[in-house]
Design a protein around this nucleic acid. Structure first.
Lengths: 254, 254
DNA sequence: AGCATTCACTGACGTACATCAACAAAACCG
DNA sequence: CGGTTTTGTTGATGTACGTCAGTGAATGCT
């Protein structure tokens, strides 16, 4: 272990002052959905105890709580330990465009890494626990461990790809295709984390879904009932059960 | 200069075999719009001759020529020396969404840096000269010169910001706001490169503009004539002259 | 528990924009 | 250079979706 990493580790493994809203119980990183990402810091053969050292604080946010505002200085990268978050940008006249929903195990904040301040605003959609990696810690580690840099580039590239997909959706797809695409995206992401790909809870409102997909809240509702009439899925408020992934896929693709 | 950089420099400063479509006359990088970016490789105090070594080849593309396809292995980062290029993604059923227009002095290809293959397709809009920096050269230099990595992150962040702006446009703006936003974006970018911000040539067709902005070609035409009736601008085919940037701005913002 | 608020949903209606069709002027090309 | 193709533009018509308005159910708050 090199000097700088040891220094940081020491600093972080000493008892930490917990902040106001940090109420997390002492869980190990093994239980965390972002374990795989944290492991990067350590390398494949690393000491597991070190994992706990890169996350300086875990914070709890309630529904509606703000994580950061556009323009805020970038202090930390955020990993969602459990829960979900929406990020969005605002026009001068106050119109909002939600740019992404982020669920358990996903990262946010890296898009601002070079600009040094957040480009969007982030708000919790439900009770959400967030691991924070201070930016200076990340930078120190990335000096020591080249794979961190690789991982960061990968995450940025991934974000660009996701955004391209959303641009295609907003520019070229109709309402049915949009909602189908949206549901399948969530389905895939839940499946990746070990949850059911066919039965899950939408943590965001119909209004948020509509905003994200570039359509009115009412249209979202109408498409949901249309899909339900066609036996594609059933909904009970925010609980969704998908019955025909294949047909949903063919709708999503047009 | 360290070993690896010296090695690469030697390899690249020896007389190069010109490829088929490489017809560029020997211009120095000082004349190039991307001089500022190339300089990063060298550092502020660097040897100017070195500049010429990072660009392995300069290629010429005619209107409609393909630079790369989605899925192609990422061989090089491309800098537009002069001309313009469109990048786009495709749906399975063949629908196209143009994700960006890129003009003199702008870079493309970096979005794919981590994935190792291009995420979009790129096509020249007019006769275009492109400087190519092979990816292995970039990587070697970035080992030696930390500011290169910083610069790469910055370019990726920039792309994310641009995409967010486009998502907001596609999701929340109407046809007039979209076209005004588009024209102002071009205006700013031309100005940055020393060209007139009020009088310029659109290298892309009305159809391409419509595709990019998520609206029909005919709507683009109609908004152009509406703007012309309102004395905001004059057009003669692809030649545009903006008469009232301020009013255009207020339209763009809604 | 009880009241206020938010949320999901549905119907009626309006409209911004797409689509279809036609045409003239450039641009291309052998 | 003359014919073909592409591109820009306009008009007529259609429609997908937004907007407005109203309702019941769930949720939040004190």
């Amino acid at each position: 272990m090199t000097a700088v990493v040891r220094m940081i580790s020491n600093r972080l493994t000493t008892p930490r002052v917990r902040e106001n809203n940090e109420v997390c119980s002492p869980v190990t990183c093994r239980d965390c959905g972002i374990y795989g990402l944290c492991r990067e810091v350590n390398g494949p053969s690393g000491d597991l105890r070190l994992l706990e050292t890169i996350v300086r604080s875990r914070k709890m946010f309630k529904r509606g709580d703000l994580l950061y505002r556009a323009g805020d200085p970038l202090r930390a990268i955020h990993a969602i330990r459990c829960g979900s978050i929406k990020t969005y940008v605002l026009t001068n006249d106050g119109r909002m465009q939600i740019t992404g929903f982020h669920v358990t195990g996903e990262l946010l904040g890296l898009g601002a890494i070079a600009a040094n301040h957040y480009a969007s605003e982030a708000r919790a959609l439900e009770s959400t626990m967030v691991c924070e990696v201070p930016i200076e810690v990340l930078e120190a580690y990335s000096e020591e461990i080249p794979s961190i840099r690789q991982q960061m580039l990968k995450i940025l590239s991934r974000e660009i790809l996701d955004n391209q997909a959303l641009m295609l959706l907003l520019g070229k797809k109709n309402a049915e295709e949009r909602l189908a695409t949206f549901l399948l995206s969530l389905s895939r992401r839940f499946e990746k984390r070990g949850y059911s790909p066919t039965k899950f809870n939408l943590s965001m409102s119909r209004s948020d879904i509509g905003n994200y997909l570039g359509m009115a809240e009412e249209t979202v509702c109408r498409i949901f009932t249309r899909f339900q009439e066609e036996r594609l899925l059933t909904t009970a408020r925010r609980q969704v059960q998908l019955h025909d992934l294949d047909r949903l896929k063919s709708i999503a693709l047009g």
